[in-house]
Structures are given as structure tokens and as C-alpha cells.
Design a protein around this nucleic acid. Structure first.
Lengths: 185, 185
DNA sequence: GACGATCCGGGATGGCCATCCCGTTTGTCA
DNA sequence: TGACAAACGGGATGGCCATCCCGGATCGTC
């Protein structure tokens, strides 16, 4: 039996944490989340023993969403379109959620370990989309997955100063053009 | 009159700090620098009142070098070549020096303020090179300076996992291709 | 409506770090 | 060589933060 107030508080903490992490990234102190939720720090750490577990509870929802998207795209026809659509989706999600951007760029949170724990393999899907696009001859064959992640990190970095959807589209366009196989190798 | 041992210690701290920041970035504690230099923490903070001042003493040398490079390139003939050469130079320096990479990507250190203090305007030069390349029709006109910095940050991000010169060249090539003006806009 | 289990609040604890301070040592110059 | 200013070392201080703990409040049940 779980007490109703406990359930309420847990939800309240989660709701506040989602907003807080999205706005300020992993830098926001647990203390601050507790304050905004109107509970004590003890309440937070009882429901989520560590800051990381709290963050993971939030991020895994987003990751799940992205993995679903990846699956759908993998099932589609056009590998290049799928790859770039997913790239854009990651960028868009990261732009909306600073915490997710931190996780995606590996800043203070090991999303791979988290993914393994939840059985979701975001990187695996992304990598497969890349490989498929390369196999179709639509993406330079010499780039590897780490390169693509770095380019994504660059797109996400742009948003840290000023969230500008137009800039995001520009950068994605640059990356997209840049990743095209050379016409005359 | 400055005592000889003081001068020696200052140099020793500086030498150690250069290596330490280059290897581990801004994350290395002052305490650790003192330990490696074989001096007390007090000695470090007397010569460099704050960690930031120590870092700045180091980074400004690199920045000076880069600014010199930028000046030379600005004086050259080919604006596009100049811009991309400078982009590559920034990436190369950042790859060699994790601390500089942190500074360049704005992670925990405001290089603009530091530049202003030393009279060196790294960003200004970079921005001018970009503008010139755009004016020459060699770089997409719609990207702004922040976009370019983000792309540079992406290139630098690639090195955080494994320093791989080949990967750096690949990414620069991707960026270079990506920044080309669309042939049919 | 009362009792026991459960949960709450927020202060206490401990780690990490930059910076400051001061008793001690060392270099310099007369 | 002696005296004094200058620099040294590293412990003390204070800030920030996550996590733990426990006396007290609250919920659910009988």
C-alpha cells in the first residue's frame, strides 16, 4: 500500500524536476527542486535516492519517445531521410530540454549506462540509422558515429546562448549538406 | 626587486598548470596543480589570486598566438581559405589543449571578458574572417557567428572522447562542405 | 476515534573546492 | 654575517552540494 500523499508528492517532485532540468540542465540543485515543489529535501531523496535516479526517471521518458521515433523511421523507405529526420528530432528535443541536451552530449550524465538500465538503446538506433544512410550512399562513408554525435553536440551548443529555432534549422542544414558524400571523391 | 625563488616558483606553477589544464581542462583543482608543482596552495594563490587569473595567464598566450594567426590570414588574398584555415587552427589548438577548448566553447570561463581585459579580440577577428568569406560568396550568407562557434564546439566535442586527428579533419571537412553556399538557392 | 505504519521536513553530515591567513623559512642587501 | 622584507607551506575557513537521519506529523485501517 502506498500512501496517497506520498504518491502526490512524488508526482509533484517529478513535475517540478521536469521543468527545472529542462530549463537549467543538470546544474539545478536538488535543494532547489525541493523548494520549488514545496517539499523538504528528504522527500525528494526518499522517492529518488540520488539526483541521478531522479534525472533518469525524467530522461528515460524522453529517450523512450525518441527510440520509438527511431523505430518508426528505421521501418521506413528512405534511409537518408530517416537519418536526418532523427538527427533533427534529437536536436529539437535537446533544444526543448536542457537536461536532455546535457545527457545527449554526455555532460555529467552517462546516458548509455542509463539506456542500458532501461533496456533502451538510443545510440544503437541512431548508429543503425547512420549506417543505413551510409549504405544507401547518402551519407559520407568515412564519418563514424562519434562524429555524428559531435555534430549533434554542436547543434545543441548553439541553443545554450539563445534558443533560436531558425538557427537550429540552419545548423541542421549545414550538417546535412556537409554529410553528403563528395560528388567527386 | 623580485626574489629569485619567487620567480622560479611562479614559473614552475605556470609550467605545471599549462600541462594540467591542457590535459584535464578547467576541472583540475588548484590544489592538484600546487601538488604537482611541489609547492603549497598558498604559493599558487599568491602568484595568481584566483584560479581564473591563473587560467587566464595561460590561455592569453594561446589566444595571442591565434590572434596573430588571424591577422596574418586577414591580410591574405583568399577570404574563404583564410576563414577555413582559421577554423582549422582553432580546432587544432583546442584539440591540443582541453583547457583552451573549455574556454573556446565557453565552459566555465568567459573568454570574451578575458580577451577584453588583454586587449585581444579573438572573436572579433574570427567574426571578420567569417564576414569576409561570406562577402566573397564562399560561405552561406545566412549563418551567423554563433552558428560557426557552435560548429567549432562540435569539432572540439569530438576530441573529448578520443583525440583522433583524422576525426578532426573529417569533421572540419564536413563543416567546410556544409558551409558552402547552396549552388541553387 | 485511536493506533500503528508510513511519510514528512529540514537540519546535520561529509565531501569537494577556492581562497585566506599566519607562523616559519629563505633570500637579499648592507 | 646579521637583520628585515618577502615568500613559503599548508591548515583554517567558508561556500556549495548531495545524501542521511530522526523527531514529529499524517494517513489508512480496525
Amino acid at each position: 500500500m502506498v500512501r496517497a500523499d506520498a504518491q502526490r508528492n512524488r508526482a509533484k517532485v517529478l513535475r517540478v524536476a521536469i521543468e527545472a532540468f529542462a530549463a537549467d540542465g543538470l546544474a539545478v540543485p536538488v535543494h532547489e527542486i525541493a523548494r520549488r515543489a514545496g517539499v523538504g529535501t528528504g522527500t525528494v531523496s526518499r522517492h529518488f535516492p540520488t539526483k541521478e535516479s531522479l534525472f533518469q526517471a525524467i530522461v528515460s521518458a524522453r529517450v523512450e519517445h525518441l527510440v520509438e521515433r527511431a523505430r518508426a523511421l528505421e521501418a521506413g523507405e528512405d534511409p537518408a531521410e530517416a537519418f536526418f529526420a532523427f538527427f533533427a528530432a534529437m536536436a529539437a528535443e535537446g533544444a526543448l530540454d536542457r537536461g536532455l541536451a546535457d545527457a545527449l552530449t554526455g555532460a555529467g550524465f552517462d546516458i548509455d549506462a542509463a539506456a542500458e538500465a532501461t533496456g533502451l538503446d538510443l545510440n544503437g538506433h541512431f548508429d543503425r540509422l547512420l549506417t543505413a544512410a551510409q549504405a544507401a550512399g547518402e551519407v559520407r562513408a568515412d564519418v563514424d558515429f562519434a562524429d555524428v554525435k559531435a555534430l549533434l553536440a554542436g547543434c545543441l551548443a548553439r541553443e545554450r546562448t539563445a534558443a533560436d529555432p531558425a538557427a537550429r534549422d540552419r545548423l541542421i542544414a549545414v550538417v546535412r549538406t556537409g554529410l553528403r558524400p563528395e560528388s567527386h571523391p
